[in-house]
């Protein structure tokens, strides 16, 4: 039998449940810590961002319309598939130069983190919602609703835990996400995209763009059909003027802890709706 020729993976974007190359045809090189070429990954353009936002918008109503229980189940399913691909995540992180011990710890924490957020799906309404005492014969409730389409700048470090810690609180409540990742975290992001594509997450709920975050984020900040931008993974790379364009459609700008976990981090991407209901007599 002839010798096997390895079939290397082409690292592509993840938009609307499919894996296209960048419409611009651009790629960028990802090197290992030792300087070896690991991949020519797709370098997303502003038009890829536009298509990803379109896909996220198209998927949002259905995703938010599912029961909280179902969204929790879908996220749990993602954790199951991540578990079965543990070796691949370990290999990707090891290539980027982490020690074997820290890699295993990060993969474990990442999967744990994801499952933890999955559990919040049907609990966050009780913790973040309120029944308000009002002066009048009314029941008065405040309850959380997803804000819509969120563009996430994924943290570069730690590559996997940071990525998952920022995506999970966005999508668990019914938002859809367009995740932009830069060089070091791109391999983890593409590997995660392959998990998402095979684990019951509807196409468009998470879209992954690899490339240059500083190039893509100003377009996200100005985009009138984006509801929120999470700048946690881009703490100081953008000028104030670009961030100010987000005010045109009153986007939420979120800057948070790249590895933290809290129900209030889910709350960063929620709108609070208050309703008054007459009390019958």
């Amino acid at each position: 039998m002839a010798e096997h020729i390895p079939v290397d993976k082409t690292f592509k974007l993840f938009i609307g449940g499919t894996f296209p190359r960048s419409e611009s045809g651009r790629t960028f090189q990802i090197h290992s810590a030792d300087g070896d070429l690991l991949a020519n990954a797709a370098k997303a353009s502003r038009k890829d961002l536009r298509e990803a936002v379109k896909a996220a918008r198209g998927a949002q109503a259905d995703w938010a319309g599912r029961t909280a229980y179902n969204r929790g189940q879908v996220l749990y399913r993602v954790a199951e598939v991540m578990e079965s691909r543990r070796a691949e995540f370990i290999s990707v992180l090891t290539d980027m130069g982490q020690t074997a011990h820290s890699v295993r710890a990060e993969v474990d924490r990442s999967i744990d983190r994801w499952v933890w957020y999955a559990g919040w799906a049907d609990k966050l309404h009780h913790v973040l919602g309120t029944v308000n005492p009002v002066a009048g014969p009314y029941f008065n409730f405040t309850f959380p609703e997803p804000t819509g389409v969120v563009v996430v700048a994924a943290p570069d470090d730690p590559p996997l835990l940071g990525l998952l810690s920022r995506i999970a609180p966005v999508i668990i409540s019914g938002n859809t996400a367009v995740v932009t990742t830069g060089g070091p975290s791109a391999l983890a992001a593409v590997t995660l995209a392959e998990v998402l594509a095979t684990s019951d997450v509807p196409g468009g709920v998470v879209n992954v763009l690899t490339g240059d975050k500083a190039e893509l984020l100003p377009w996200a900040l100005g985009h009138m059909d984006v509801n929120s931008v999470d700048l946690t993974g881009e703490p100081n790379g953008l000028d104030d003027e670009a961030v100010a364009t987000a005010a045109d459609n009153v986007k939420r700008i979120v800057r948070s802890d790249p590895v933290g976990a809290s129900p209030y981090m889910i709350g960063d991407f929620l709108e609070m709706k208050t309703v008054w209901h007459p009390i019958g007599r």
Binding site: V53, H223, M224, D225, V226, T245, N249
Partner: peptide, 12 residues
Amino acid sequence: QKLDTGHYSGPN
């Protein structure tokens, strides 16, 4: 609208 403002517009 995109040509006029330089920003992507949306269905809203």
